[in-house]
Lab assay of single mutants.
Amino acid sequence: KKKIKIYIENENGEKKTIEIEVEGDIDEIAKELAKKYNVKIVKIEP
């Protein structure tokens, strides 16, 4: 498992940072999160 930080922006332009532990393809997981929460991924840090 890797701990990563995902910087997101919602439709109101509010920026947030999510810190999660992931296993597998980080890009795939980030895309799923973006779709699920309707946010834009700004940056992903390993």
Rank of each mutant, 00 (worst) to 15 (best):
N10D: 14
T17W: 14
D27H: 09
N12Y: 14
Y7S: 06
K1P: 11
K2S: 08
E28M: 11
I26P: 07
K5C: 12
V22A: 12
I6G: 00
E45T: 07
G24N: 04
D25H: 05
L33S: 00
E23S: 12
I4Q: 02
E19P: 00
K2F: 15
I29F: 15
L33H: 01
E21D: 08
I41V: 08
I44P: 01
I6D: 00
D25L: 05
E23K: 07
P46A: 12
K35V: 07
E11Q: 14
P46G: 11
I29N: 02
I6Q: 00
I20G: 00
I29M: 10
N12H: 13
K35C: 04
K3F: 14
E19W: 09
I8D: 00
V39D: 03
I44F: 07
N12Q: 11
I6K: 00
I18P: 00
G24V: 03
E45I: 09
Y7G: 01
N10R: 11
L33C: 06
E23R: 07
G24C: 06
I18G: 00
K43V: 09
G24I: 02
K2G: 08
K31F: 09
K35R: 14
E14Q: 12
E32M: 12
D27M: 13
K43E: 06
E11H: 12
K16Q: 12
T17C: 12
I18C: 07
V39G: 15
K5E: 02
V39S: 13
A30M: 15
E11T: 12
I8Q: 00
L33G: 00
N12C: 12
T17H: 08
G13F: 02
P46H: 14
V42L: 15
K3D: 01
K36W: 08
Y37H: 08
I44Q: 01
N12V: 11
E9D: 03
I41Y: 04
K43W: 14
K43G: 12
E9P: 00
Y7T: 15
K43I: 11
K15F: 14
I44H: 02
E21W: 15
E11V: 11
I18R: 00
I6P: 00
I18F: 11
N10M: 15
N38H: 09
K15S: 12
I4W: 15
I6C: 03
I20D: 01
E32A: 12
E21F: 13
E23T: 11
E19Q: 08
I29R: 04
